[in-house]
Amino acid sequence: MADKPLRVLVGKIGLDGHDRGAKVVAQALRDAGMEVIYTGLRQTPEQIVETALQEDVQVIGLSILSGAHMQLIPPVVEMLREHDSSDIIVVVGGIIPREDIIYLKEQGVAEVFTPGSSTVDIISFIKRKFD
């Protein structure tokens, strides 16, 4: 891993306003030495990808608790692919049923963290990816 800190985009995708988890994770990543860009609420898949490319991040963390993950997450992965940016890893946090997790991972999501996940696990997962 390079000496440069990892750059991570933390975003709330869709219309869901529950940002406690996103903010806690963003703060924990920052405390772990990463550079965090937090988008705030109501981001579309297009906006997420645009910001990620502009900000030159290595990781996108998407938080969603509204149940719209099946419609909103795959387009992000897809658009990254179209922009030859599949090296940006996408992790998801939220209320995601088991079978949906399997599907999202098939689509190219690196990991899904459900309620009760610890920020320590999230940080070590991301760090491992860039070892």
């Binding site: 869709g14 219309l15 869901d16 109501r42 579309t44 509204s66 149940g67 719209a68 993950h69 099946m70 419609q71 909103l72």
Partner: peptide, 11 residues
Amino acid sequence: HPLARGEVGKV
């Protein structure tokens, strides 16, 4: 509405 994508009838 385009921003309603995936959200209709969810929560």
